[in-house]
């Protein structure tokens, strides 16, 4: 515990896939289990940590989320909840998918949860035809196969076209 307080001012550098570098306070970076494990195994905070799968725009969003959650004290759960719901509001699908991938890669459970929840909310209660349109899912069933899948799972399609 004492060491983490000492290291509070320590910063590390993250590099996005498109080459942009972000200087991050260590306690913010620790929101990510991936970074935590990296720091635990080989404490090389002086080096630049490359994140080859995450572009600068997404990384900036991710770090914004981590900073808010790292800085807020546990007593302000209500404030964090409203931050979370505002965080993804009006985000387009492309950005949301980048974010969910980044959260999965960096192992940030809270962020993964809210992003997955947001995508699930988009699917919820919608007919599958509409879900296909929204996410551009290529339907590779033949009409006969599709009918068979529907029939096998008839219970789930009650009330849907």
């Amino acid at each position: 515990m004492a060491s983490s307080i000492e290291n509070n001012n320590e910063k590390l550098t993250l590099k996005s896939s498109d080459g942009e570098e972000f200087l991050v306070e260590k306690h913010v970076a620790l929101q990510s289990t991936l970074l935590q494990n990296m720091l635990d195994s080989d404490c090389s905070s002086a080096d630049v940590i490359p994140l080859p799968k995450i572009d600068a725009r997404t990384l900036a969003l991710v770090l914004g989320y981590c900073k808010k959650h790292a800085d807020a004290s546990s007593s302000k759960q209500g404030e964090l909840n409203s931050f979370d719901s505002e965080f993804l509001k009006d985000m387009d699908m492309g950005a949301l998918f980048n974010l969910v991938l980044a959260a999965n890669f960096m192992e940030i459970k809270g962020l993964l949860d809210i992003a997955a929840q947001k995508i699930a909310d988009t699917i919820k209660d919608k007919p599958h035809q509409e879900v296909r349109e929204i996410f551009h899912v290529e339907n590779d069933y033949t009409p006969e196969e599709e009918a068979a899948v529907r029939e096998e799972n008839r219970w789930a399609f009650e009330g849907f076209p």
Partner: peptide, 16 residues
């Protein structure tokens, strides 16, 4: 996992 069982099972018809 964030969907109801019905919604989750209905996803089966999206694609193979």
């Amino acid at each position: 996992s964030f969907l109801s069982t019905k919604d989750a099972i209905r996803s089966s018809v999206l694609s193979t």
